[in-house]
Design a protein around this nucleic acid. Sequence first.
DNA 1: CGTGTATTTGATGCATATCAAATATTGTGG
DNA 2: CCACAATATTTGATATGCATCAAATACACG
Lengths: 286, 286
Amino acid sequence: LFEVASEHLAASGVAPKANGLERKHAELRPEAKPVSGPEIRARSLHGTPNQSAPVENLLTPEQQETLQRNATLLKYRSGNVVFHESEDAHFLYFIVEGVVRISRSGENGRRQILAFSVPGDLFGIPDAGHYVNSAETVCATQVYRVPWPRMQQLMADEPPLQLHLLAKLGYDLRQAQARIMTLGVQTIPQRLASFLLEFALLPNWFDEEQRYLKLPMNRFDMADYLGTAPESTARAFAKLESEGLVRRVSSRTLEILDIGGLENLRKGHVKRRSSRIPITSDCERG
Amino acid sequence: LFEVASEHLAASGVAPKANGLERKHAELRPEAKPVSGPEIRARSLHGTPNQSAPVENLLTPEQQETLQRNATLLKYRSGNVVFHESEDAHFLYFIVEGVVRISRSGENGRRQILAFSVPGDLFGIPDAGHYVNSAETVCATQVYRVPWPRMQQLMADEPPLQLHLLAKLGYDLRQAQARIMTLGVQTIPQRLASFLLEFALLPNWFDEEQRYLKLPMNRFDMADYLGTAPESTARAFAKLESEGLVRRVSSRTLEILDIGGLENLRKGHVKRRSSRIPITSDCERG
DNA sequence: CGTGTATTTGATGCATATCAAATATTGTGG
DNA sequence: CCACAATATTTGATATGCATCAAATACACG
């Protein structure tokens, strides 16, 4: 699901000292891979139409090590603020483990979760020196962070790193577009099905064996991600359950009973009739 | 924000030749700027928090010329297909003039317009060698297109070009996120207000003098962009008009009567109550 | 084992989708 | 330039999905 990365948010924070984040320069343990879990994903921008390779533009081990050497590993507990929208952007983050919600507050105060970043994703890309989104942990999370100045220097020294970042951004853009599709043309139950299918792709939270999906976030987060209210989310769950697609083991744990059914629901009927599609394909050729 | 690339509009131009697109290698006329109109926009990814500079990461004149030398100028009439989703991606496009709608068809067949690209924007970024969106002209449009292999070579030779593309992508990502916010938390009239305000920023279609906004697309396109039906779009227009915010001169031409009012509407009340925002700011610090 | 929080369920109203039809606009041939 | 046909847009009537308010139930923490 997502590897998006986007930006920021905030929290009224309490506590600096007593509870802070565990910080330590990433002394690389040779056997430990820098960005754990899902690996550094993201297809190449162009890439050859090589479908077989699921992941492209991967960094070489040396490059990954270089990145790690210049990064700091941070460990957060659940519900912590990594950074808040509008703050000065000093770092770029890579998720090693856990889930981070990237959100933004609308002018009216409503919160929209733009993405749930998972291991392998990056976030913290600024605009004119400021984060534009907020980033908060949804569960215990570890991230690598690299100071922007350092990052820029690394990219200058290693052009391939730029390409890699480019691929990442391209991936995030596609994810965001998928989000737009979901919000623009699907009903709430369909959005929920899409969401569950997205998460079911992540082995971290989906036990292929037992078909158990362990969701790390609460209904409020899900609602804000789906662009709806928590109550509607609950009703959508009830609907999926009544149709035999899933079974609620507990509020955060689901048993996926019919993936094909979920996919059909996602594709399902339209929310509104399709627009006229009268396109002339010809063009002027001089 | 960036000035990325993502939407906008154009003038309904007359048509060039018979049909076909006028094609000619961009022989640079020294006095003609490569990417016309809006210039190549897009702020730097990080950039110093230098607010004063409205545009960063601009290409040098030499770089722009290099790009042009490797590009082909194409001229399309209104309603033409530049490329279709799932096609093999051979080119990267830069809009010189006009408006291109970037869209995708949902699994249910419903169309969602992801963005209206305007002069200065780029589109055609592939995923695994294929376009993931469709691109069609909304009015007479001119674009520069660069073969991907060539583009990759250029980036390899000129790392700064990679940074520029990175900035463009970052801008597009932020635009997409803004779209998510709109679709996720705003009512139809609010989305329309947002849309009009976006377009009112483009001098190409907004006559600051007379406050006349000339929209290049029809109601179907607008509806698919706003994630609603043409009828609802019409009603939203009626609402804005009844509130004295705009006046419909013709279906495609508006007189903007109260920009402040539009902004207030956009910010306006919430569609749903805000989610609980109980965030602990503390984190573990080792 | 309470007490506060999260989630679900119920009841109701409003916003918007949808179906229909009227009106306005645009293009075409005479 | 005019009349008509085709298309686009608006308006009306109605159905429905979803937001919202309220309340009950299930959970988690201490």
